[in-house]
Design a protein around this nucleic acid. Structure first.
Length: 859
RNA sequence: GCCGCGGUGGUGGAAUGGUAGACACGCAGGUCUCAAAAACCUGUGCCCACAAAGGCAUGAGAGUUCGACUCUCUCCCGCGGCACCA
């Protein structure tokens, strides 16, 4: 028996505790249990102080439905949860409340965890992890060291954002698009600081190629491809009058006869050399001034000043290798040092940016392509004829008259390469990854620097361990001279001294000189050189918060291992992830970084797969009722706790799964939420009113057939994350069931099946009825998913729409034994509605077996 | 500008190339009630009609097809991402 009225809060809380005590959601770790594994993973959250959002509820519920479905399908399911708790948001929140993040984070985690339990999420909490736990980040640091050994890391002077008003270094996320600091609103500058760089670019080709075959949303795949941005072009060398070479990279080498000037970025090394060479010349002074102004701007600022091109003549000239012409070299900040070679050839007739630059500074132009478009010469002269498709080369020496793209473009490349003027060069948009943060709340980078060893030019690969590594791993090692030169005196902290724990600091705000706050703790910094035993200092930078999320999905397979990051068996048993679910905002960064780590780990022999996430699905955002993003300032935030208190967790779950396709954005609707509540209420009432017995002779045949259809539909849709249509079909079934007034319309076994297919969506209510009405002793959530009786699909009668000229005019019902063309056409021809249109006319009948009949009239 | 994703009733949405609008919300009328809420019943794309029967409808326009929300092309609009990318 159940209570007359459906009041979820009377049993939900206590039920969750019961499940926890019975450990029904704990993963079966034994390998030989004969069940297929299923790893369902949702992107783990940063546990903010604000608690769970209804958007969180949506993505966790969706993944939970999958996990519950597979569990009932007798898969061995791994469905874990953890906390991505390092990073700026936690640190800034802690600074604001004048506490240490170490003290705040556990509290936030507890809040999140309680809320998740209230939602009925079936995580295996025995595998919970937090990136901030020293037992976890010990292995994050250890992995960093393995990548270091491979030669994937190096140290380099790199510009970081800096706020002079707050005296602090900033992360990119803290810089607003207008180049100001998001906290104080003052303009930011940049400082050169030594940074750890991760050589993700060495994996660019694999990161691109191995996207093939992933079951991911096409948009995300495209964004990854674009981000990697592989492009083939030509590096072309120009000799300067300082007797140096300026190399430009171009996709449009066919226009090289049209080059009338060169432009180099202010950061280009050649610019430094000419300033130092001639301090007193007028041009050198101007260049120097221009460069210092340009460097003080942020990237965003430089990009903002679109079209307003500025630049300065360097005072030097270069020789165009294809025609020997002497052309001026300019310095301008519309050329970015991070793109291509940091130097471009100026072809004003065929490039919009070069055109406006040439116009502003009165530089000459020369048209070298005539495109197949109307008024081509006038357009090119007006600065409008930029790469308008096919054309013919002109003013291009022996190549004049040839086509481009086509023979002219091809043969010019061959010729330039033969003559040593250029060579093929593939560029990528992808850059090496800045891995240092000068902030407190992150994993300390486990490295030590020894001045003496640095002076002696000793690297880790000169140590016995290093030599051994190079010998064992020479085929995958990425160590080269450049990497080694950057790493004199840098050594990894021995494994037995890991983790390098983050010290508890009273003051951990970013320091005035842009250094990490850890640098102000001399007793922490001071250490012993792992190589020579002399005095050394620890690296004071920390890792970015991506570090922990790059491998957490691996640790879930073996979360308590204190001998290794994971065991080979655990990888074999669980990886890779079968379903990965999360927001599209991680389309590039997190997913790219995690893929990169896994590829490197594969090279190290630590995993035997190269892609971590086989299937990826995105969740749509949950907007407020007014279609705006939920925000405190707009006062439109819906708190899941309030919804659960009023309607229960099952209502929230069913509502969020029903509203729209899972990957689509939805706006909150309280009335639609009440609709979900009504649906559950009606089920509750029906189970209260009807009687459920075995060997039932009153079972309604039509209703049973409907139930079988519903099982088929819900099974298929749930496994495909089409939760909205799965729920709709259960609503249809309920409507029919209610219409059958007989109290024995459904026998006990049929009623059980209906509850079972609903169980992943409404775990609390179904469990309550399962136990209290149907008197089952074991939990519904570990019962076996019902098999549908497919024979109901073969109905006795078939409805066939009849069209005339493609317009539906009638619906005929024929016996399932009688659905061949001749018979159906004969029946349809007798139908008066059809007669009206075809009577006395000549027609052809097109019949698709058991689907449709179409009479096409012959005029 | 480029890349990606969308555009179907009053609303959210459904539809292996085969009866467009399932399911839900809302709305209208009704039952119950002193009354209201809740619950339940009936109706509900638009046009013309008492009804029947029609006609029109999936952003716009073309195309392929016996048949197009679905496939192809052109265009318009909205959302998201990237961008002085050489």
């Amino acid at each position: 028996m159940i209570e007359k009225k459906y009041i979820p809060k009377q049993f939900e809380k206590e039920m969750m505790d019961g499940w926890t005590d019975a450990k029904i959601y704990e993963t079966d770790a034994s390998i030989k249990n004969g069940r297929e594994k299923m790893y369902t993973l949702v992107m783990f959250p940063y546990p903010s102080g604000a608690g769970l959002h209804v958007g969180h509820a949506r993505v966790y519920t969706g993944t939970d439905v999958l996990a519950r479905y597979y569990r009932m399908k007798n898969f061995n399911v791994l469905h874990p949860m953890g906390w991505d708790a390092f990073g700026l948001p936690a640190e800034n929140a802690a600074i604001k409340s004048k506490k240490n993040p170490k003290d705040i984070v556990p509290h936030n985690i507890q809040t999140f965890k309680n809320q998740m339990k209230n939602l009925g999420l079936s995580y295996d909490w025995s595998r919970e992890l937090a990136t901030t736990d020293p037992n976890y980040y010990k292995w994050t640091q250890w992995l960093f060291e393995q990548f270091f050994k491979m030669g994937l890391l190096y140290k380099k002077m790199t510009p970081v954002y800096f706020c002079e008003s707050c005296n602090t270094g900033l992360a990119e996320e803290e810089v607003l698009p207008n180049g100001t600091h998001e906290r104080c609103g003052k303009p930011i500058t940049r400082k050169l600081l030594p940074q750890w760089m991760f050589r993700i670019t060495t994996y660019a080709d694999r990161l691109l190629e191995e996207l093939e075959g992933l079951d991911w949303p096409s948009g995300i795949l495209q964004m990854q491809r674009n981000w990697i941005g592989k492009q083939k072009g030509l590096n072309v060398d120009f000799k300067t009058d300082t007797n140096e070479t300026l190399t430009v990279w171009t996709k449009y080498w066919e226009t090289v006869f049209g080059v009338t000037f060169l432009v180099v970025a202010p950061e280009h090394p050649w610019v430094q050399s000419i300033i130092q060479g001639a301090e007193t010349s007028k041009e050198a002074k101007e260049v120097k001034e221009y460069v210092s102004t340009a460097l003080s701007k942020s990237d965003q600022q430089r990009l903002k000043e679109e079209k307003q091109k500025t630049g300065v003549f360097s005072g030097h000239y270069a020789i165009n290798p294809v025609n020997g012409e002497k052309i001026p070299v300019w310095v301008a900040d519309y050329v970015l040092s991070s793109v291509g070679t940091g130097a471009v050839m100026g072809v004003p007739s065929h490039d919009e940016r070069d055109f406006s630059f040439a116009k502003k500074y009165n530089l000459s132009t020369r048209q070298v392509v005539v495109y197949d478009i109307p008024d081509v010469d006038a357009k090119v002269a007006a600065g409008e004829g930029f790469f308008e498709g096919k054309g013919t080369l002109v003013n291009s020496g022996d190549f004049s008259g040839k086509s481009t793209p086509g023979e002219g473009k091809e043969s010019m490349a061959t010729w330039m390469i033969e003559k040593g003027m250029g060579e093929w060069y593939t560029t990528y948009h992808l850059r090496d990854w800045i891995f240092s943060r000068q902030r407190y709340w992150g994993e300390p980078i486990p490295m030590a620097f020894c001045e003496k060893c640095a002076a002696d030019k000793i690297t880790w690969w000169d140590t016995d361990d290093g030599k051994g590594f190079l010998k064992d791993y020479h085929n995958i090692s990425k160590v080269n001279e450049d990497v080694q030169k950057n790493l004199y005196g840098w050594f990894i902290i021995d494994q037995q001294n890991l983790p390098v724990e983050l010290p508890h600091l009273d003051s951990y705000e970013p320091s005035a000189n842009g250094e990490s706050p850890l640098a102000s703790v001399p007793e922490w910094v001071k250490t012993v050189c792992p190589h020579c035993g002399g005095e050394a200092s620890r690296e004071t930078d920390t890792m970015p918060n991506w570090a922990g999320s790059c491998w957490y999905f691996l640790r879930f397979a073996d979360p308590h291992n204190d001998k290794a990051a994971w065991s080979p068996e655990s990888m074999k048993q669980w990886e890779p992830v079968d379903w990965y679910v999360g927001g599209a905002e991680h389309a590039v960064l997190h997913l790219l970084y995690a893929r990169f780590w896994v590829k490197a780990l594969q090279d190290l022999g630590m995993v035997d797969f190269s892609e971590p996430f086989l299937r990826l699905r995105n969740v749509g955002m949950v907007l407020a009722e007014d279609h705006h993003k939920m925000s405190k300032s707009l006062g439109n935030v819906i708190n899941p706790d309030d919804v659960i208190a009023e309607y229960g967790a099952d209502t929230l779950r069913v509502y969020e799964m029903f509203m729209a396709p899972f990957n689509q954005e939805i706006s909150w609707s309280t009335t639609a939420l009440q609709g979900a509540y009504r649906f559950l209420n009606r089920i509750w009432n029906l189970f209260d009113e009807r009687e459920f017995i075995d060997n039932n002779t009153h079972e309604d045949k039509k209703l049973i057939a409907k139930l079988q259809h519903t099982i088929i539909k819900v099974t298929r849709d749930t496994a495909d994350m089409k939760f909205n249509t799965a729920i709709a079909s259960m609503m249809e079934f309920l409507n029919e069931w209610e219409a059958c007034k007989h109290k024995h319309a459904l026998s006990k076994s049929s009623a059980k099946k209906f509850l079972q297919i609903l169980a992943p969506y409404a775990p609390f209510m179904t469990e309550k009825i399962w136990k209290d009405v149907l008197k089952e002793s074991e939990s519904i959530h570990i019962s076996h998913w019902p098999e549908a009786d497919e024979s109901v699909l073969h109905q006795a009668e078939v409805k066939i729409p009849v069209q005339v000229n493609g317009k539906t005019r009638a619906l005929i019902v024929v016996s399932a034994h009688n659905i061949e063309k001749d018979a159906v056409v004969h029946i349809a021809e007798q139908d008066p509605k059809v007669q009206k249109y075809i009577g006395g006319k000549i027609y052809e009948a097109i019949y698709i077996r058991a689907r449709i009949l179409n009479f096409v009239l012959k005029d």
